[in-house]
């Protein structure tokens, strides 16, 4: 190599254009342009707006951390932070537990197995607004089917005020979110379960493991990488949830179900305070980063996944 003379600049340019790197760069360009236009720019604009006093119809001026200072002393903002964390935590735990349970059932040899697997996906494929509207009726103060059934059974005397009472409203929106989120988790975990060789279960049962031990010592450890991915996505989806709340409660009653996303929208668009709304949205970023970091460490290849070829 070193004995060869260096080619003239023009030839080097042609060489480079024909190399794999140049082709790679060329192929990346459309995607990169798309991401910059539709992701990086809005994100940057949002962060910038958070530092201004922009209102609808008036481009704001830079006011530093004033929006954040205001929010720091705003009890409604802190209620929404609490609501979001509470909503995400409870909904994610329930979705994980029920989703895993459903995945384990669907992984068994059931009659009409593929039919049930398809059915399970239904809540996921229905548009959120549509299912939220359905839940709106289910949770209606007068015509709720749940209230009606319980009254027919004679368990209660008057309809339940699902969305009018703060505690009931929180439980109701979490229930709706769990119903919508289970399919994603169940189907993803089912896919994970199917990558585990059945002979491992057989080997464990010959080794004397009960079915609970087989689950705890063989299935669960092997499923952890997939659980980490799926739960990260689920937490991100839940934390940034907007549609369900917007249709069901619009954040009420008395802000009891206001999430950061819905509060940000309410302050920014109907309220006209674009800067403040943007600041609330930006305040979600640390929480989301924490979730991503958690998954980053959760997703790291475990020692047993490393080395050797298979």
């Amino acid at each position: 190599m070193s004995s060869q003379s260096i080619p003239p600049p023009k030839a080097r340019m042609t060489d480079w254009l024909q190399s794999r790197n140049a082709t790679g760069l060329l192929f990346m360009l459309p995607a990169a342009a798309f991401l910059i236009c539709f992701l990086t720019y809005p994100l940057g604009l949002g962060v910038w707006l958070g530092f201004t006093d922009a209102k609808i119809g008036r481009s704001g001026v830079f006011i530093g951390l004033e929006n954040y200072w205001y929010l720091w002393h705003d009890p409604v903002f802190w209620t929404s932070v609490f609501n979001t964390v509470f909503y995400t935590l409870i909904a994610s735990v329930l979705k994980f537990a029920l989703g895993l349970w459903l995945a384990l059932i669907l992984n068994e040899h059931l009659p009409f197995k593929s039919f049930f697997r398809a059915i399970v996906l239904l809540p996921w494929v229905v548009p959120t607004v549509l299912s939220a509207l359905a839940f709106w009726w289910i949770f209606d103060a007068q015509f709720s089917i749940i209230s009606w059934s319980l009254m027919q059974l004679g368990w209660i005397d008057a309809p339940i005020n699902f969305l009018g009472d703060p505690t009931n409203a929180r439980i109701s929106v979490i229930a709706a979110n769990v119903w919508r989120g289970i399919p994603f988790i169940a189907i993803s975990l089912l896919a994970g379960l199917q990558t585990i060789s059945p002979s491992l279960q057989e080997a464990a049962s010959l080794d004397g493991a009960t079915s609970w031990q087989r689950f705890r010592l063989v299935t669960l450890p092997m499923l952890t990488p997939i659980i980490a991915v799926v739960m990260t996505f689920s937490v991100l989806f839940t934390f940034t949830d907007f549609q369900l709340i917007y249709v069901l409660t619009k954040g009420g009653p008395v802000n009891a179900t206001h999430l950061m996303a819905t509060l940000s929208f309410q302050r920014g668009i109907p309220g006209g305070q674009l800067g403040e709304g943007a600041a609330i949205a930006v305040a979600m970023i640390p929480f989301l980063l924490a979730a991503i970091l958690f998954s980053f460490f959760g997703l790291q290849r475990r020692k047993w996944q490393q080395g050797g070829q298979d």
Binding site: S199, A203, V218, P221
Partner: peptide, 13 residues
Amino acid sequence: IAMVFQNYALYPH
């Protein structure tokens, strides 16, 4: 009884 499987069925973790 103990069994040796064709794919060995070793617990990878």
